[in-house]
Design a protein around this nucleic acid. Structure first.
Lengths: 302, 302
DNA sequence: TTTTGTTATTTGTCGCGTAGAAATACAAAA
DNA sequence: TTTTGTATTTCTACGCGACAAATAACAAAA
């Protein structure tokens, strides 16, 4: 062990990427109902997050540094605080750093502050990003379909996002494909997939907005729909729904959901799952249609 | 004028990009029925291709060099050969250079020669591409949705393409959204958009496989469907259909369409357009459904 | 057997300078 | 007025070396 590492109080510099991972670890822990004192397995987290153990380790160290986790020699890390503690929420928020630029761009776009076409240099200046970071971001946005590379210089935002009607349009499209997916001949209930999904809805029903953040509830909602789509056996349908949901998230911040609405949605999600588990697909498709319909073509919390 | 340029017989080195543009100029000329002796306007081509006049100019010079176009001082370029001549077809094919690696990857993927996850270095070696070229390609593939960046190293191919069922799945999804789009309350016939589309179908009906290449006919077919989707007024629907069609193109090479099938498709396309122009959307949606249905969930030439 | 700790190897990133491409603006010709 | 020809400015692409980060494989502990 080097001399530097022997100094326990040394403050490691924490990269943005590590912070992001740390935040996602907290997210996972929350969604899996992991409590104080439970172990945080490197390997599982790495698999779940799609990275190797190295970066996960770094993120866990950073969580330990902030006091949320504790390192136990030859036993890895255990959770040292409850996950609704202030310190946990801070880690969650801190992880959103990379999200910040993304949301800023989305917002500027929605409010018309960004022109239709921009050069990379302009974006780098505007959002204070390095080229690689920016390109990563543009990649992601392009994969969501609201920006595309021009042949020469610069990037062009598609017209998809600029209209207040866009959100409604996502709803119309979902009304075509989601009930359609349920009625596909290849549809097959996937119990394993649905376990945690239903669990999440139950917890939202029980604790609701008291415990969960808005974006968590939104994600849980999307999860229901995407899991159902997954059962359709049509990969393109699932892909399409995922893409739509990623865009819907941008609008979701604009709406303030009220408690009653969240409750109704959650109830309907559970109903949907029950019907599908029983194999009553016709009924489920009908419910899905009304579920998607009743707020004018697009529902607010998924 | 410099000494170098004064030497008329000098052979300029032609970049891959220029070749690509040259090929696309030929494509455009073919689809717009431009004949021998007609002028090729720089500015219009530049707009259409989404680049500035500079590169278009270079491409035109390269076409002149191959004898397909002729440069007339202060009058730009005119077409010097008919567009179904051997020399024109050669230009078309030469433009596909960048397409080559793309198709190679797609093919290796469809045949299972490529593993699910690969590193950039591996791909660079395998297809003999520079990093920038590769990244451009991966960008494009990612935007089509069949590869995604891993968080650490490498890229991961989605499961979308690996199955022989995939093509059928695209058909199922189209059967949900295309008739749906026609029935949208926001649907509005767009005469301007449809003019050239119908024109192309008429020409295919008249000249068919005698004049047009397979990929041209495929494109014209997609064009019909996408233009109709465009009328739905739902940007997400259009986006989705475009994405599906880009993927379908990969499969299309596998099928050998027979003359009769092409004829029936073209006839149905024209019927669809007629119905929609008359405003008979219910009928059109029904026809669209059977049109998409009759070859088992996915039709071959669009 | 599972999980953590450690290390070697591979891979991608970043910064920077240069070369070259594209956009823009403007002049000249048809 | 439209289109081509040209010059200037601005921006991007590319190569390269050093560096940082991630992976994979292996060893050790529980």
């Amino acid at each position: 062990m080097s001399q530097r590492e022997a100094d326990m109080s040394e403050i490691e510099p924490i990269s943005a990427k590590t912070m992001e991972l740390a935040g996602q670890i907290v997210e996972i822990a929350r969604s899996e109902n992991i409590g104080r004192g439970d172990r945080l397995y490197e390997h599982r987290l790495a698999n779940r997050l799609g990275v190797s153990r190295g970066p996960v380790r770094a993120a866990l160290r950073s969580l330990a540094q902030s006091g949320l986790a504790e390192a136990i020699p030859n036993k890895g890390f255990v959770l040292a605080q409850d996950l609704d503690s202030e310190i946990a929420l801070r880690a969650l928020r801190a992880g959103d750093t990379s999200e910040a630029a993304y949301l800023a761009i989305a917002n500027d776009r929605l409010t018309g502050a960004l022109p239709d076409t921009v050069s990379e240099a302009e974006l780098m200046r505007r959002y204070d990003l390095k080229r690689a970071e920016l390109l990563r971001l543009l990649d992601r946005i392009a994969s969501e379909g609201w920006v595309e590379r021009l042949r020469g210089y610069g990037w062009k935002f598609t017209q998809t996002l600029n209209s207040p009607l866009a959100y409604a349009q996502t709803g119309r499209l979902r009304m075509m494909i989601e009930p359609g997916g349920i009625l596909e001949p290849t549809f097959q209930w996937n119990a394993e997939l649905m376990g945690p999904v239903r669990e999440h809805q139950k917890r939202v029903q029980a604790d609701g907005m008291r415990v969960f953040t808005l974006s968590e509830m939104f994600r849980f909602g999307c999860e229901v729909h995407e899991a159902i789509a997954e059962c359709s056996g049509n990969a393109f349908l699932v892909e399409t729904l995922r893409r739509i949901n990623r865009v819907r998230r941008l609008f979701a911040y604009k709406f303030i959901p009220d408690l009653q609405m969240v409750e109704q949605h959650t109830r309907e999600h559970l109903q949907l799952l029950d019907l599908l588990e029983k194999g009553d697909r016709t009924e489920a498709a009908a419910l899905m249609r009304t579920h998607l319909h009743w707020s004018g073509g697009g529902d607010q919390i998924a």
